[in-house]
Simulated assay, not measured.
Amino acid sequence: MASTARFDVVAIGNAIVDVIARADDALIESEGLVKGSMRLIDAAEATRLYAAMGPAVEMSGGSAANTLAGMAALGRRCGFIGQVAKDQLGQVFTHDLTSLGVAFDTPAAAGGEPTARCLILVTPDGQRTMNTFLGASQNLGRESLDAALIAEADILYLEGYLWNADASRAAMAEAIALARAAGRRVAFTLSDTFVVAGHREDFRRMTAAREIDILFANEAELLELAQEGDFETALGKVAAEVPLLVATRGEKGAVALAGGERTEVAAEPIDTVVDTTGAGDLFAAGFLAGLADGRSMAECLTMGAVCAREIIAQVGPRAQTDLKAKVAERLG
């Protein structure tokens, strides 16, 4: 039976503009960065690192927003709640997202910090090292929540990155309560191991309280959450508290556990990895689009794998190929 909800997914996340530049390993080393990681930086460091970067491409990003962009490309109905400032990058972000058909009406902040940006260094092996200035995005407060919008979505999707700031954490906690009151499902992506390390107790409390219906994690995040060194042990431990657990493992593929039933798919073959930025975001997009379409768990995982493959074969987190056509080629 088709859903009567206005949206398939409404997401809350960081509203960020990505600044992407090629870099060699020497720059990563000279800056003292950990290749493939994400760190938070202040305005001064953002200015200094930007000056050290080579020629860059600017495009809207943000984990949850990337997922919605992918879902919109797959024909799903989506809405976004996030904070930008009244500045040029804020206008860029808003235009980029709404032009894809994603509903985004959160009022821009008139004062305070500028729109967030993520400085991304992409090394020849396709790894991305992210340096994020959260700016206005972390100031998303309860007053910016749209209760009606949340109630009109089958799934509320939350980005773990936004759990770091007090204001946005309180807003997301209230959003969970609003979704629950409306009888909607809540999906959560852990985002990064540093997020899990900082908020493990919160996340474990939320899973134990059954506040999360769908949990997305990569292998490293899952191990950090479970405080285990073995993937299978961690998988079983966390799956016991989450109705649907989806774990990605890079070239090892992905696995989903739902109601005690396990489904696995292999990674989709790819000739060259260009840039891994947004791989997890687009995997979630394909998976959630499959759920909205009523597909089997194996098909949902495959859709996620196809979308992840497409995104790592290009520069940037927003698909430059026809995702709907690529999924159709794979699944019919």
Results as ranks from 00 to 15, higher is better:
T106G: 02
C118S: 15
T123Y: 11
L140C: 05
C118E: 12
L134I: 08
W163N: 08
G111P: 00
R117Q: 15
E152Y: 00
Q138R: 15
A165L: 04
A148V: 13
V122R: 10
N164R: 12
I150P: 03
E113I: 00
A165D: 12
S137A: 14
A116W: 00
Y157G: 00
L134K: 06
G111T: 15
A151S: 06
A153P: 07
A103M: 11
A167P: 11
W163F: 14
I120G: 07
R117S: 13
D125H: 03
T132M: 05
T123C: 12
G111N: 15
L100R: 15
L156G: 00
V122A: 07
P114H: 04
A153W: 01
I176Q: 08
P124M: 02
G112K: 03
A136D: 06
P107L: 00
V102Y: 05
L149W: 04
G141K: 09
M130C: 08
F104L: 09
L121H: 11
R117K: 15
P114S: 02
A170K: 14
L162S: 11
A109K: 14
D154A: 08
A103N: 12
G112I: 04
L140Y: 04
Q138A: 10
A136F: 03
L134H: 03
A171F: 09
I176V: 14
P114Y: 08
F104A: 11
S144C: 13
P107N: 01
P114W: 03
A110T: 13
L140Q: 09
R117A: 12
A175D: 05
R142C: 08
I176Y: 09
F133P: 01
F104G: 02
L121A: 04
E113Y: 03
D154Y: 00
I120C: 05
T132A: 07
E174C: 02
D125W: 09
Y161D: 04
Y157Q: 05
A165G: 07
A136M: 02
E174R: 13
R117F: 11
A153V: 03
L158D: 03
S144I: 02
Q127V: 08
T123A: 13
N131F: 12
M130E: 10
G101Q: 10
A177T: 14
T129S: 07
A171Y: 06
T115V: 03
N131H: 13
G160W: 03
G160D: 07
T132G: 05
M130P: 07
L121F: 10
N139E: 10
S168M: 06
E174S: 07
C118I: 04
A173M: 14
A110Q: 14
D105H: 15
Y161R: 09
W163V: 14
S144Y: 11
A136E: 03
E174K: 13
Y161T: 07
E113L: 09
G101I: 09
F133M: 12
A136W: 02
A148C: 00
D125G: 01
W163M: 13
E152M: 01
Q127S: 13
R142L: 13
R128W: 04
L140V: 05
R142A: 10
G101V: 06
L100N: 09
F133N: 06
I120P: 10
T115D: 03
L121P: 12
I155P: 00
D105T: 15
G101E: 02
N164I: 10
E159K: 10
A136N: 03
A173S: 13
D105R: 14
A136Q: 04
A170T: 12
D105G: 10
A170L: 12
G101N: 05
A136S: 10
R117P: 02
T132R: 11
